[in-house]
């Protein structure tokens, strides 16, 4: 169980996050549930564990999304044909302060509209978008670097890049700006992350994506990512 204390600042509630594992029993889950006192509770359950799923549902939790761990081994990343031509016409570079300010404005306009906070009517859309700003600021403070993706001198999107201690990277957030959502850009945005990881000589990319966002799932598969794990995410707002 994790005390997600940062959500107090982000969302104004206390929050606990629980991740159940394949070997966990209903008894372990029940004991864990008994300890939960936070206002906002999140439980991640492995797939095909009907016993755990029904237990959390009986405890008042609601299913909100599937969380997929996807990994790219950074092999065979060369593009060809139309994807290469499009990719070659788009560049990326590290953001300066002006770019970061623009990014935060774009985020507040609502770049992400399928995550569990945005969809949850207990939270406002403003909270959902502000949460991303806080998150990026936290990760920048821990060494994350923000990049902008540019087509014909227009910034069309962004990604954050964070190396892990085991030779990989965790680009936990990327997106296209609303004003630049033109066909085909999703693939290119993700490929720029792959390019940067390869340029740095890293071994892999590991990321988490939501089943609520099917286009993003498809883009990851199309760019060569492998799904390594899926868990079901349940939430509950405790009565005060």
């Amino acid at each position: 169980m994790v005390d997600a204390f940062w959500e107090q600042r982000n969302l104004g509630v206390t929050c606990s996050e629980v991740t159940m594992h394949e070997g966990d029993t209903v008894e372990v889950l029940t004991a864990t549930l008994a300890l939960l006192t936070a206002q906002y509770q999140v439980i991640k359950v492995p797939v095909a564990r009907y016993d755990l799923m029904t237990t959390v549902e009986k405890a008042g939790f609601s299913f909100i999304e599937g969380s997929m761990n996807v990994v790219h081994n950074l092999k065979n990343i060369e593009l060809s044909g139309i994807r290469k031509r499009l990719n070659d016409s788009i560049v990326y570079e590290e953001m300066d302060q002006t770019d970061i300010a623009r990014l935060y404005v774009e985020l507040k306009r609502g770049v992400f509209i399928t995550d569990r906070i945005y969809l949850d009517t207990a939270f406002t859309k403003e909270q959902a978008s502000q949460r991303y700003v806080y998150w990026l600021e936290d990760e920048r403070g821990r060494g994350g670097q923000l990049y902008k993706v540019v087509y014909k001198e227009q910034t069309i999107g962004f990604f954050i890049f964070k190396e892990t201690t085991n030779g990989g990277c965790y680009p936990f957030l990327s997106g296209l700006y609303e004003s630049a959502e033109t066909p085909g850009m999703g693939n290119i945005l993700l490929h720029k992350i792959i390019e940067e990881a390869s340029r740095r000589g890293l071994k892999f990319i590991s990321s988490y994506i939501s089943t609520n966002n099917l286009p993003v799932v498809k883009v990851h598969i199309s760019e060569g990512f492998t799904i390594t794990n899926i868990s079901y995410v349940y939430i509950k707002h405790a009565e005060s």
Binding site: G81, R83, M185, G186, L214, P215, V219, S222
Partner: peptide, 13 residues
């Protein structure tokens, strides 16, 4: 649903 970013690249090709 089929005409997303991935679908668009396939369509253009």
């Amino acid at each position: 649903p089929a005409w997303d970013s991935v679908g668009h690249m396939g369509l253009m090709a």
